[in-house]
Design a binder for these strands. Structure first.
Lengths: 222, 222
DNA sequence: GTCTATAACCTGATAGAC
DNA sequence: GTCTATCAGGTTATAGAC
C-alpha cells in the first residue's frame, strides 16, 4: 500500500476539515459555546492548526460564512439577472424575484452539510449588531441592494416604508424556515420537510408573495 | 437620613436585579457568551448571589424566561377567549386571532426592558433543540395548541400540512421582527420602528393574514 | 442573605521543536 | 504543516465567615 492510495475521504486538507467541523458545531451550539478544541477534535486536527490556518477564531467564523455565502449569492444574482433581462423595462414578475432569492438557499441545503449550513444562516439573522455573526450581514449586503430594487419594481405603487416592513418580514420567513427546519419536521409529524425543496419553494413563494402584495390590515372582518 | 428613606430604585431585591441584568445581557450576547460575573456585576450584586438565588445558570435562564412568558401567554389567552366567545360556533375572524397572538408581544415590548425581552424572545426561536433556550419552547407550548386550533377554524378548507407550513412562516415573521428590530430601524432610516406598536401591528397583521390566506404559488405571472 | 476565597476546569493564543 | 507544552485569564460552582 503506497501513500498515494489513501481513500479520497481522508485526503481532504486540514483547513477544509476544520471549516466542515466548524460550521456544523457553530450551527448547533453557536459561536461562543463552540471552542476551538471542539472544532479541531471533531476535524481530527491539532488544536494549534486552527490558529495556524485562520489566525484567530473571529477569522475562522468569517471564513466559514464566506465559503458558503459567496457561491450562494452568485447564484442568486444569476437568477435575478436572467429575470431582469426577460422583463426589459417593464414591471418584474414578483414570484420570479422571490424565487431568485429563495431557490439558491434550498439548493444549497441539499448540498454538502446543507442542513447545518441552513441552520447556521437562519440563526445568524437573529444575531445582534456587534456579534461575531456580524460578518454574515456584511457578506449578505452584496445582494441586499439589487434585490430591494427588484422588489420595488415588482411592487409598483407600494410606499417605501411599507416595502421595508414587508421585506423585513419576508427575510424573517426565510430565516426561521432555515433555523427551524428540525422543529417543523417534528411538529408536522414529518409531513412538512424543508428537504423537499420543490414543495418548500412553492409554500414559501406563495406565502411571501401574498404578504408582499397585502393591502393594509382590515381588522374585524374575515 | 434613616435607612427606610432609600430611593425606591435601590430597594429592588437582589434576585430581581439579577433577572433584570440577565435578560438584557442574554438578549445581547446569548447565553454562553454571558457569564454569571457579567450578570452579577451589572446587577450590583455579588457573584455568589446568583448561585444562591438560582442554584445554577440553567435555572437562571429558565427563571428569566418564565417571568416574562407567563403573563404574556396569559394575556394572549384572554384575547383569544374573548374572540372565541364573540364568534360562538361560527368561523373565527382571522385578523382577530392573529391580533390575539401578536398584540401582547408588542405591549410587552413597551413595558420594562421591553426591547431586550423582545430581542431575547426573537433569538430564542432560532435556538436548536437541545440548547439552554429549550425552556423557551416548553413555556411557549402552552399557547401553541389552542392557537393552532383557532387558526384552523379561521381558515376552513386549508389542508393540515399547508396550515403547518403557514403557521411556521408566521412565527418566523414574529420572531425576526422581535430579534431584528434594531436592524429594521437602522436600514429604514428610522421610518420603520417596532416601538410604534400600533403601526407595527397593522403591518404584521396585514402581512401574516395575507400569507395565511394565500393560494398555491402561481409562478410566472404577476 | 451577602460576602471572600478558592477549587477544578476550560478558554484562545502562542512559542518552539520537528 | 503539524505537533507538544504552556501562558494568562476566564468559567461555574461551592465552602465557610459574617
Amino acid at each position: 500500500m503506497s501513500e498515494t492510495n489513501v481513500s479520497p475521504t481522508e485526503r481532504i486538507p486540514t483547513k477544509e476539515r476544520i471549516l466542515d467541523a466548524a460550521e456544523v458545531l457553530f450551527a448547533e451550539h453557536g459561536f461562543d459555546a463552540t471552542s476551538l478544541r471542539m472544532i479541531t477534535t471533531a476535524a481530527g486536527a491539532n488544536l494549534a492548526s486552527a490558529n495556524y490556518h485562520f489566525h484567530s477564531k473571529d477569522e475562522l467564523v468569517r471564513a466559514v460564512f464566506a465559503r458558503r455565502i459567496r457561491p450562494l449569492n452568485q447564484r442568486r444574482m444569476e437568477l435575478l439577472e436572467s429575470c431582469l433581462q426577460a422583463s426589459g423595462e417593464g414591471p418584474l414578475p414578483l414570484e420570479e424575484v422571490i424565487k431568485a432569492f429563495v431557490q439558491p438557499v434550498l439548493e444549497m441545503r441539499s448540498g454538502p452539510q446543507g442542513a447545518a449550513v441552513g441552520r447556521l444562516f437562519g440563526r445568524s439573522y437573529a444575531d445582534p449588531l456587534g456579534s461575531p455573526g456580524q460578518s454574515f450581514f456584511e457578506l449578505m449586503k452584496e445582494v441586499a441592494r439589487p434585490f430591494t430594487e427588484a422588489f420595488r419594481r415588482a411592487l409598483p405603487g407600494l410606499e417605501q416604508a411599507d416595502l421595508v416592513w414587508k421585506l423585513h418580514f419576508s427575510v424573517g420567513v426565510m430565516a426561521h424556515t432555515l433555523a427551524g427546519a428540525d422543529h417543523l419536521r417534528i411538529i408536522s409529524g414529518g409531513r412538512c420537510d424543508l428537504s423537499d425543496a420543490e414543495g418548500a419553494l412553492e409554500q414559501i413563494v406563495a406565502y411571501i408573495s401574498a404578504g408582499l402584495r397585502a393591502k393594509p390590515a382590515r381588522i374585524g372582518r374575515n
